[in-house]
């Protein structure tokens, strides 16, 4: 069966003052109908850029999709006409952004903003669209939705705004819903509610979700499969259980060791030493090599490719040679 959303060898470059940098390099991902794919990785590893590539929203210039393919339902999205892309955006593939505080337009009521999304893709009257918007607000758990629909974004809390964003994103029942760190800007209790809501939405609307997060806890709750990204590449991909229980890549292990475990207060939290190298300083070797405890000669000499060495695909020379 071919996947609903297939990303293959995607390469995205940015023109910067250090010259052209490669923000994404041969990224391949698949999202099947109805499943949740988790994408994890440190800040700056290219998660949002991956999502924006699917939406056709890479800021250009300076960004550019330099190669690869993105297929939605078998339809190639790279190089598609702007009109076609607009028709798909919001209706077949929708996105919830990382920044709920600034992602809503301050001069329109939230009801109008959701109604606009509906009217862009469905032939309904403005009144009907507004009523649908109120119903959606109700669906995402906003109290007294008909009053709230007439509110401006600044009158709502961050959690409320993110609910509005979710309502807007699912308003046209997209096949793929991209949630880019939907909870990073929110406090912990609200985070759990938003994840619950996403789960319900997925059940009701049958959308496939691409969930971007650095919260491994959320991954274990939500995701069916996981892709771990590092410095613009996918370095490990498998089912959520496999990655959580048997991570292969030292970086993935590090990430999982960072999860605090309830009831083990004595257990000191680990951290991964060092930081992600800036994109323009990436050498020809493995980008993680400088932070890796298992590093050997080959790691500096050639880039590991994502290959299956028995368990699941991982991009690590150490895992390939059984050193880890």
């Amino acid at each position: 069966m071919s996947a609903l959303l297939e990303i293959e060898d995607l390469r995205v470059t940015f023109r910067t003052r250090y010259g052209e940098v490669t923000a994404l390099d041969s990224v391949s991902l698949q999202v099947n109908a109805g499943e949740t794919l988790g994408i994890v990785g440190e800040s700056g590893c290219g998660k949002s850029i991956t999502a924006l590539s699917v939406m056709g929203l890479i800021p250009s210039p300076p960004g550019k999709i330099a190669g690869g393919s993105i297929r939605l339902n078998g339809e190639e999205l790279i190089g598609v006409s702007p009109a076609r892309m607009r028709a798909l955006r919001g209706s077949d593939v929708a996105m919830i952004f990382q920044e709920p505080m600034t992602s809503l337009n301050p001069v329109f009521t939230v009801g109008d903003q959701i109604a606009e999304a509906i009217m862009l893709h469905q032939k309904v009257s403005p009144d009907q669209a507004f009523r649908d918007a109120v119903a959606l607000l109700d669906r995402v758990g906003i109290p007294s939705p008909d009053r709230r629909a007439r509110d401006y974004p600044h009158q709502l809390s961050g959690g409320m705004r993110q609910r509005v964003m979710i309502a807007m994103a699912v308003s046209c029942r997209p096949k793929v819903l991209i949630a880019d760190e939907p909870t990073t800007a929110l406090d912990v209790t609200v985070q759990a509610q938003i994840f619950d809501l996403l789960n319900e939405i997925q059940r009701d609307f049958g959308a496939a979700i691409m969930l971007i997060t650095h919260d491994m806890g959320a991954i274990s709750e939500m995701a069916d499969r996981v892709a771990v990204m590092y410095a613009g590449r996918v370095i490990e991909t498998a089912t959520a259980d496999d990655v959580l229980d048997l991570p292969q890549h030292p970086y993935a292990r590090g990430l999982i060791d960072c999860i605090p475990t309830l009831g083990r207060a004595d257990h000191a939290l680990k951290e991964i030493p060092g930081v992600v190298p800036p994109l323009h300083l990436l050498g020809k070797g493995c980008a993680f090599a400088d932070r890796c405890a298992y590093k050997f000669d080959r790691c500096d000499a050639e880039k590991p490719l994502l290959t299956d060495h028995g368990r699941h695909p991982v991009a690590c020379h150490g895992a390939e040679e059984g050193r880890i």
């Binding site: 607009r86 955006r89 992602s103 301050p106 862009l120 807007m168």
Partner: peptide, 25 residues
């Protein structure tokens, strides 16, 4: 700004993005 990206993500056309979403702000 982020809300312009949101408008584009909804599938709004260029004219609507410019004159409706951006100009008001």
């Amino acid at each position: 700004s982020d809300y312009i990206r949101t408008a584009r993500a909804k599938g709004a056309g260029e004219r609507s993005v410019l004159f409706r979403h951006a100009l008001r702000n």
